[in-house]
Amino acid sequence: MAKSSSAASSSALPASDAAVPLDAALDDLIGYALRRAQLKLFQNLIARLAVHDLRPAQFSALAIIEQNPGLMQADLARALAIEPPQVVPLLNKLEERALAVRVRCKPDKRSYGIFLSKTGETMLKEVKQIAAQSDLDATAALDDAEREQLLRLLRKIYQD
Score class of each variant (00 low, 15 high):
3 K>S: 10
4 S>C: 01
6 S>P: 00
7 A>V: 02
8 A>N: 06
9 S>P: 00
9 S>Y: 06
11 S>T: 13
12 A>I: 09
14 P>Y: 10
15 A>Y: 13
15 A>V: 08
16 S>K: 06
19 A>E: 10
21 P>A: 14
22 L>A: 05
22 L>K: 10
23 D>A: 11
25 A>V: 09
28 D>C: 10
31 G>Y: 01
31 G>R: 07
34 L>S: 07
35 R>I: 14
36 R>W: 02
36 R>N: 04
37 A>I: 04
38 Q>K: 10
39 L>A: 07
39 L>R: 14
42 F>M: 11
44 N>K: 11
44 N>T: 14
45 L>A: 08
46 I>K: 15
49 L>M: 08
50 A>L: 03
50 A>D: 14
50 A>F: 10
51 V>Y: 07
54 L>N: 05
54 L>Q: 09
54 L>S: 08
55 R>Q: 09
58 Q>I: 01
59 F>W: 15
60 S>F: 03
61 A>K: 07
63 A>H: 07
64 I>N: 09
64 I>W: 06
65 I>K: 01
65 I>V: 12
66 E>W: 00
66 E>C: 00
66 E>S: 09
66 E>K: 11
67 Q>E: 11
69 P>V: 03
69 P>L: 11
70 G>R: 11
73 Q>M: 15
74 A>K: 10
75 D>V: 05
76 L>W: 05
76 L>E: 04
76 L>I: 12
76 L>R: 08
77 A>F: 13
77 A>W: 06
82 I>N: 04
82 I>T: 03
83 E>K: 13
84 P>V: 11
85 P>L: 11
86 Q>Y: 14
86 Q>F: 07
86 Q>I: 11
86 Q>N: 12
87 V>H: 10
88 V>N: 15
88 V>G: 09
88 V>A: 15
89 P>L: 09
89 P>D: 14
91 L>G: 09
91 L>C: 10
92 N>V: 07
95 E>L: 09
95 E>T: 09
97 R>Y: 04
98 A>I: 03
98 A>K: 13
98 A>T: 08
99 L>H: 03
100 A>E: 00
103 V>P: 01
105 C>F: 10
105 C>P: 00
106 K>F: 14
109 K>T: 15
110 R>C: 02
110 R>D: 08
110 R>V: 05
110 R>N: 11
111 S>L: 12
111 S>A: 12
111 S>D: 06
113 G>S: 02
113 G>H: 03
115 F>H: 14
116 L>A: 05
116 L>T: 00
117 S>E: 03
117 S>P: 02
119 T>I: 08
121 E>P: 01
123 M>Q: 12
123 M>H: 12
123 M>G: 01
125 K>H: 06
125 K>I: 00
130 I>A: 03
131 A>T: 02
131 A>L: 04
132 A>M: 11
133 Q>W: 06
134 S>H: 10
135 D>M: 14
135 D>V: 04
136 L>F: 04
136 L>I: 07
137 D>T: 01
138 A>S: 11
138 A>N: 07
139 T>R: 04
140 A>F: 07
140 A>G: 06
141 A>T: 02
141 A>R: 04
141 A>S: 15
142 L>F: 13
144 D>K: 15
144 D>G: 04
145 A>T: 08
148 E>I: 03
148 E>H: 08
149 Q>W: 04
149 Q>P: 00
149 Q>D: 14
151 L>P: 00
151 L>K: 07
152 R>C: 08
152 R>M: 10
154 L>D: 04
158 Y>L: 05
158 Y>I: 10
159 Q>G: 03
159 Q>N: 08
